[in-house]
Design a protein around this nucleic acid. Structure first.
Lengths: 143, 143
DNA sequence: GTATCTGCAAAACATTTGCAATTCT
DNA sequence: AGAATTGCAAATGTTTTGCAGATAC
């Protein structure tokens, strides 16, 4: 990705988010990584550079991003929520050895498979998530 | 389901779990419900009947059940983990209005769709979960 | 009699809330 | 000035841990 800070500003504005310095930095960090970081990871990555940053602001910003639809929370760990700036349809894989969370593409889904599950009549899904757990290629090699 | 207490005892034994009274009751409760209860729900349901029961024992028992593969934790709520005694392949739907978690069957999965996602080479999935969120039929009717 | 299991109390975390200080317009 | 935002401190709620007593084999 080749997103400059001012691009990010426009992007936030377009989604009804006032681009404060903290929000820009948090968004910038999240958009640039594929690590699916937790609040703690985001905080620790930015804090050295933004000494006054607080965890509360990270929580606040992420809640706002989720509400505005530009970030997706990933419930793949028992202990903490992870966040993903990629809101396109894809699956997540968590390695139980190293803890990393990977994206993976979904098989081209026909209406009945993939991520368009056949729900009972009257049920309307707004959000669908496919989460796997296992051992990643990198950790499997070392075993 | 038509599981008696002694059946449950054999079932636990077969899975390497010593069937203490508490474990029997917790397993019995979980196996009989489709509510996907949290620790708190299980505790509050059994405590009136087992006055000395502690949340710790509920946590301990569930951890053991998960380790032995007879219970699945469901990470579908941000606040608390829910548990399912049905370890067969199925999806979960959480209603954001009433909070209930429903099971739903998965579309017959061909190898590339359903719940057999195409992972990158070297990745081995041990657990796959499909979680949806939205509004259930019952809550949609009332709106 | 030795292992295991239970349950209380305290600790450890992640997350939320209240509020005062700060920043932006 | 007025509204939104930040960040500290305290509260909340879930889950874990240490340990002493109870229970099972």
């Amino acid at each position: 990705m080749n997103t400059t800070m001012s691009d990010a500003g426009s992007f936030l504005l377009e989604h009804g988010i006032r681009p404060s310095y903290q929000r820009l930095r948090i968004w910038g960090y999240l958009a640039a990584t594929k690590e699916h970081p937790s609040v703690e990871t985001i905080y620790r990555s930015l804090a050295p550079d933004i000494p006054t940053l607080s965890r509360t602001t990270v929580y606040n910003s992420l809640s706002l991003f989720i509400e505005k639809g530009i970030v997706q929370p990933i419930l793949i760990e028992e202990t903490e929520t992870r966040y993903d700036a990629d809101t396109s349809q894809h699956g997540h894989f968590r390695c139980r050895v190293c803890g990393r969370v990977y994206d993976f593409p979904l098989a081209r889904g026909d209406a009945s498979g993939g991520l368009a599950p056949r729900l009972p009549a009257g049920f309307r899904a707004e959000l669908v998530q496919l989460c796997c757990q296992g051992v990643c290629a990198s950790c499997a090699k070392q075993a």
